[in-house]
Simulated scan of single mutants.
Amino acid sequence: MKLKELSLFFFFLPQLLFAQEGEFVPTGKPFATIYANFHRGITGSAVDEGAFELVRGYIGYEYNFSPDFYAKINVDVGSPDDLSPVSKIRRYAYFKNAYLRYTQNQLKIEFGLISTTQYKLQEKIWERRYLMKTIADEHRLGASADLGVNFYYKFNELLDADLTIMNGEGYSSLQMDDVFKYSVGSTFKIPRNFTSRIVYDIMPKKISESTLLFFTSYDFRSKWNLAGEVVYRQNNGWKADYNILALSFYGKYNLNEKYQLFARYDKVESNILEGETLPWHLSNDGTAIVAGIQFRPLKKITMALNYHDWYPWAANMEGGGFIFFDLEVKM
C-alpha cells in the first residue's frame, strides 16, 4: 500500500468505526441555487421589452450536529423590487434563512430566521418557483421567511399541524415595535389522492390584519396534478375594510421523466370602499396566465419554455404578453 493511500486509510478509519458502531457522525454541506431567464415581449405594452436576466441566487450551508439538531444559513442575492429599473444591475444580499432546528420524534421546533409554512406546500406542488412565485408570495400576501419560532407536529401520515410566532415584516425588514404575527396551520391528506392545507394568521395592532388561506391538490398516479388556492386578506396594511381576494389554479401533466406540460391561472381583486366607485387596489387587480413545457435533463437542472400574460382590470392600463425561457440550477 502506497504512503498516500495509507494516510487516507487512517484518516477515514475513525469515521468508519463510528458508523459501524451506530454512532452519529456530524456532517455538513454547502448548497447554491440559481434562477435565470431570457424573456421577450410579444403583445401589448411588452412588445419593446426583452433581456437576459439573472433573477436570483441562493448560497448557503447546512449542518447536522446530531440526529436532533440541524442548522441552516441561506443568503438570498437578488434585485429588490422597490428600486428603479436602473438599479437592477446592482445585487443586494439578505439572509433568507439562519436558524436552528430541534427534532424529537414527531415534533420539530425551528428558531431564528425561518422559512414560513404559509405556502411551502404550494411551492412544492407548483414546482416552478424559478419562473413564478405562488400567488400569496407574488402579491405580497405573506412573507416566505421571517424572524420567529415555529412548532410543527406530525400526528400521522395523514395529518400535521404547525404554530408560528414571528415579527411579521418578512426577512428583508427589521421590526422593533413589539407587534407579532401569529400563524396556525394544518396539512391533511384526506380523502385519497388529495393534499390540502389551511392557514390563518393575524397581526394585531389598533386594527388587526389577517389572512386566511386554503389550498387543495389532487394527484393522479403521479401522472397529472390539479391544484387550487384561495387567499383572503382582511384589513390590508391595518386599514379597516381594505380587503384583497386572490385565486390561483394550476395543473401539470408528465409526458415522461424529463418533459412536463403545465398551466396556471391567477386572479387578484380588491373590494370597493364605501363612498367609492372603483376598487381601492385597482392598479394591481387583474388576471394572469402562464403555460408552457418544462424539461429536466438532469435532476438538478430544470428549464422551461413558457408564455406569461397579465390582464389588468384598470381601463387606463395595458397588459402585456411575454415568451420566457427560464432556468434553475441547483448545486
Rank of each mutant, 00 (worst) to 15 (best):
T277D: 14
K2M: 06
F18C: 09
E276L: 06
Y102K: 04
F188W: 14
G321Q: 05
S196A: 11
L305K: 02
W310V: 04
F322R: 00
F18A: 14
D285C: 08
D309E: 08
M303C: 12
R221A: 15
V77N: 02
W238R: 05
T211G: 07
E5F: 04
M331S: 10
I244T: 02
A263V: 06
R296G: 03
L298V: 06
N97Q: 12
K181E: 14
V179R: 14
D68Y: 07
W280V: 02
R264M: 09
Y242I: 06
K299P: 00
F188R: 04
L212Q: 05
Q118S: 11
E274V: 13
F10G: 05
G275R: 04
T216E: 11
W280I: 05
G28L: 05
A240K: 15
Y200F: 12
W238M: 02
G185Y: 01
L245C: 08
V329N: 03
D178R: 14
F262N: 03
R296I: 06
N156W: 05
L8A: 12
D326C: 14
G251I: 01
W224E: 08
D81W: 14
I301L: 12
I244K: 01
S66M: 15
D219I: 05
R140Y: 15
V77I: 15
F69A: 01
K252L: 00
N167E: 11
V268F: 04
T277C: 05
D326L: 00
N256L: 03
S217F: 03
R91Y: 10
L159R: 14
G319W: 05
S79K: 07
G237S: 07
E269P: 01
S210K: 00
F111K: 00
Y153S: 02
N37F: 07
S7E: 12
W280D: 02
F38R: 08
N167F: 10
A288H: 03
N156Y: 05
G41L: 07
Q234G: 07
E318L: 09
T195I: 09
P191D: 05
M331H: 08
A227W: 01
V86S: 15
K252I: 00
E21V: 05
K299R: 13
Y35K: 10
F188V: 06
F24A: 08
R197V: 04
L261E: 02
F188C: 04
L8H: 13
I190H: 15
N74M: 09
P279E: 03
D162T: 04
Y99M: 02
R233D: 11
R90F: 11
S84K: 08
Y99D: 00
E49Q: 15
D178K: 09
F325M: 12
E123D: 13
L13S: 10
Q260R: 14
E229A: 02
